[in-house]
Design a protein around this nucleic acid. Structure first.
Lengths: 189, 189
DNA sequence: ACATTAGCGGAGGTAGCCTCCACTTCGCAA
DNA sequence: TTGCGAAGTGGAGGCTACCTCCGCTAATGT
């Protein structure tokens, strides 16, 4: 259900004509591969080559690098956001913490997305809204249960966790430990 | 006193010959300006031009972009690290918090340095050591006073704060608020 | 079957990275 | 002071990536 708004947005960008649509999809796939291999700085010309299209085609579909990045990561973001739905059964604080940990885990592997936290493209705007809508109920429930300080907004919590997750750590173990430390800061005392 | 180790390191990189040393210094100055204007991705050829030297000279003194970045920010890092010395009079938790806030403030404006947290150049290694030596006593004092959880290392605290500081915020006010939230996570309960 | 037009794709201009080496300049020692 | 060897210079040139532009190609709908 949360996904609908997103796929609609992606479809809007997708060309009508059959061949054009094939190219569009090939570019997204090639982009996903290339970004996975070389990070977001992967060469656009290489991506066009992988997709078997000309560089001009890439630029027509995705006028900026960011536009392609967004298209590539859209579905993964949607998955993270909608993870909130699975947590209703859990104890209030734990539900919120689990959701934020999941977010942290993803964000730490795809730091690109963090840069998008403040950028204002329509797509990212929508992603952000989805994230907030997913996290907000969890936060409110935890606050109502007296487990989380009442002066915290979901935006605070997300940025707190995003920041910690985004910085470099020598080990995964330490990252998790420090994320937990940050989550502890949210607790009511 | 803490600065000595750093100036020694910078001097070691500084050429002996008078004209060469002039060029070296001019490059650091030009680098500082250019990085301030355009961020770390400023054009190296532009920096060489500003300094009035050839691009070859830039590369001889600073074989990589990072080498120049390090040279440019060295003294500022030293200042942050040595800020710990001024805090001995304060109450244990507040001293630690003030030091970390100062670090966060600087880090948020010079995100470059955060990338350096894990990189292994001799210069950065030394900076890190200085930071740790400066913060560690503050942490230990706060822990001894029972104000901070005992399972936290200075490295954890630094990365926690570095992360939060490094992420984008719509307002300074929110950044400060969230940093405080993170600092709260350090408190013993 | 054909006209319309969306879509293609790569040549080419721009800019930044980095290397290499013929030349210049410094500073020491006589 | 002068001369010479070492230290340092700097920009031409090769490379790669970015992005624009426009003559051509082929999908679509009538």
């Amino acid at each position: 259900m949360t996904d609908q708004a997103l796929s609609a947005l992606l479809d809007a960008r997708r060309p009508t004509r059959a061949d054009a649509r094939r190219n569009f999809d090939a570019l997204v796939v090639a982009g996903k591969e290339a970004f996975a291999e070389h990070g977001v700085d992967a060469s656009l010309e290489d991506i066009a080559r992988r997709a078997g299209v000309g560089i001009g085609t890439l630029y027509r579909n995705f006028p900026t690098r960011d536009a392609l990045v967004e298209a590539v990561y859209l579905d993964e973001v949607a998955a993270v956001a909608s993870f909130g739905d699975e947590l209703e059964a859990r104890e209030p604080f734990e539900a919120l913490a689990a959701w934020l940990r999941r977010f942290a885990d993803y964000a730490s592997r795809k730091k690109v997305l963090l840069d998008g936290l403040n950028r204002d493209s329509e797509l990212l705007q929508t992603c952000r809204t989805l994230m907030y809508r997913s996290g907000e109920p969890l936060l409110e429930r935890a606050q109502a249960a007296g487990a989380v300080r009442s002066d915290v907004a979901i935006d605070d919590a997300i940025r707190l966790v995003a920041g910690v997750a985004g910085v470099a750590f020598p080990s995964e173990e330490q990252r998790e430990r420090v994320v937990d430390l940050a989550l502890d800061g949210l607790r009511a005392r």
